[in-house]
């Protein structure tokens, strides 16, 4: 698997400040990071470290106070709202911790939603592949209220995968699931990266979840403080402990 030279997502000296003057909160302080194509990267850190903020800024869901953000070749910072909307529609996929799905649509309709919004049809072969990968074949006609939490998250993953975005951002995708469902979801995500070259950036606080990634980036107090390639759950835990000691 070759990685092209342009990263799937890039942050360049990103600052994010909330509030003003003395009450100002510096969520991100000059963060620069590249996220390679075809790789599964995890962003980890204690609560308040700014990991979710970083993801939101990368995905164009939030504005940066200074610095630049790129998705592939597209410069995200400075895009208008309709530009950001298009970006989210065509180039970015999302998996949130919960409430990913529209209750009035069936699983199948939810999966095809972003494509429908973009006015595109799914590639039939790819669609079948995705459905098989997440193992949802028999539940396609069901509404979210008729699916378990794990199944709902798998539908969310399928939705993110089907449109083949440049990068999928996942915010604590297994946070609300039991360990078995969670492991299933993480496996699907990793499969999509290994077998189909999808780029995934996942925010998590769970070392076990982080161990599924190819690389873990550690954030503390709004700055990148550490990195770990080919992580194991224990390795991640160790690094986290070291971070705590430094606090």
């Amino acid at each position: 698997m070759t990685t092209s030279t342009v990263p799937a997502a890039r942050a360049q000296a990103v600052w994010k400040v909330y509030g003003q003057g003395e009450a100002a909160v510096h969520a991100l302080r000059g963060v620069s990071a590249d996220f390679e194509r075809g790789r599964y990267t995890a962003i980890m850190g204690p609560s308040g470290s700014g990991k979710s903020t970083l993801m939101h800024c990368l995905a164009g869901l939030d504005n940066v106070s200074s610095g630049e953000v790129y998705i592939g070749d597209t410069k995200v910072t400075g895009l208008s709202d309709s530009g950001l909307t298009k970006l989210r529609r065509d180039k970015v996929g999302f998996v949130f911790q919960q409430f990913n799905l529209l209750p009035t649509l069936t699983a199948e309709e939810n999966i095809l939603l972003p494509l429908a919004i973009a006015g595109r049809k799914a590639d039939p072969d790819w669609y079948t592949t995705v459905i098989d990968t997440v193992g949802l074949g028999d539940r396609l006609r069901h509404r979210p209220s008729e699916l378990s939490g794990g199944q709902q998250q798998r539908v969310a993953c399928a939705r993110a995968l089907v449109s083949r975005p440049q990068v999928i951002f996942a915010d604590e995708p297994t946070g609300n699931l039991d360990s078995r469902s969670g492991t299933d979801v993480l496996n699907f995500l990793r499969d999509s990266v290994r077998r189909h070259g999808q780029t995934i950036v996942m925010v998590t606080h769970d070392p076990n979840a982080a161990s599924f990634a190819d690389r873990v980036v550690f954030l503390a107090d709004g700055q990148i403080v550490d990195e770990l390639s080919e992580p194991t759950a224990d390795g991640v835990l160790d690094r986290m402990k070291k971070l705590d000691q430094h606090q």
């Binding site: 065509d90 999302f94 972003p114």
Partner: peptide
């Protein structure tokens, strides 16, 4: 509110 936020996140424009 959450649903509408999600719709916007997956790329539905304000007008739509």
């Amino acid at each position: 509110t959450r649903e509408l936020g999600m719709l916007r996140a997956v790329g539905m424009s304000r007008g739509r």
